Amino acid sequence: MLSVGRDADPSGLGPLPANVEAHRHVPQPAVLAHTDVFVTHAGMNSTMEALAAAVPMVAVPHTPEQRPRPAGRHRHRGARARHAAGRP
């Protein structure tokens, strides 16, 4: 399941694989209750919701305000963070 945000049209993504759904908005806590892993931009709300649901995250920050701190923020909450290159 993919949430593209209120300003994007999911149909603009073109054809998607049969096992992929795209929506402008999804009730994230409800979705997290039924997932095994969460790919996230590492925003504070998303991070806190995933931690509360005990769902492992793949954090892919994409704005400057998210880049400097996500790994430290996750470590602070007791999660393990690894860089893409495999360095802790």
Results as ranks from 00 to 15, higher is better:
R24D: 10
R24A: 09
P64Y: 03
H25P: 04
R67C: 00
P64L: 08
H25N: 12
A42M: 05
E65V: 00
G43V: 00
A84L: 13
P64H: 02
N19R: 09
P70L: 11
A84T: 10
H41N: 03
G5Y: 06
R87I: 12
A42F: 01
V20C: 14
Q28R: 10
G43P: 02
G12Y: 08
P17D: 15
D7I: 02
H34N: 14
P27N: 11
H23K: 09
G43L: 00
R77D: 14
V20P: 09
G14I: 06
R24H: 12
H74P: 07
V58Q: 08
A18Y: 06
V20K: 08
H74S: 14
A30H: 14
A18N: 13
V39R: 02
V58I: 15
R82G: 12
A71S: 13
T35N: 03
P64V: 01
V58N: 04
N45K: 14
R73I: 01
S11N: 08
V60S: 05
P56M: 13
R69N: 04
G72K: 13
V60Y: 06
V31R: 06
A52E: 15
H34W: 11
R77P: 06
R87D: 15
P68E: 01
P10G: 06
H41L: 00
P29G: 10
F38P: 00
P17E: 12
V58H: 11
S11A: 15
F38Y: 07
R82V: 05
L51K: 03
N45C: 07
T40D: 03
L13Y: 02
G12W: 06
D7M: 05
A50M: 14
T35Q: 05
R75D: 11
R69A: 05
N19A: 11
S3G: 13
A59S: 15
R82H: 14
D9G: 04
G12S: 14
L16G: 15
A81I: 02
V37I: 08
N19S: 12
E49A: 04
A53M: 06
H83W: 09
R24L: 02
G78R: 04
A42H: 01
A18M: 09
A30T: 11
H83R: 15
G78L: 05
P10D: 02
Q66C: 03
M48F: 13
R67I: 00
M1F: 12
V26A: 10
A81V: 03
A33P: 01
G43I: 00
A18L: 11
R67K: 09
G12Q: 11
R6F: 03
T47F: 06
L51N: 04
G12T: 07
D9R: 01
Q66D: 14
A81N: 09
Q66H: 11
R82M: 07
R69S: 07
D36S: 07
H41C: 02
L32V: 01
N19D: 15
R69P: 02
L2W: 15
D7K: 05
L32Y: 06
V60H: 04
L2Q: 15
A33F: 03
H83N: 10
N19I: 11
L51W: 11
L32N: 04
P70T: 07
T35Y: 06
G14C: 12
G86F: 07
R82E: 11
T40H: 02
A42E: 00
A42P: 05
V55A: 04
R77Y: 14
P27W: 04
G5S: 11
G14E: 08
A52P: 00
H34Q: 15
L2Y: 12
R67A: 01
H76K: 14
T40Q: 00
P10I: 00
N45Q: 15
P61R: 01
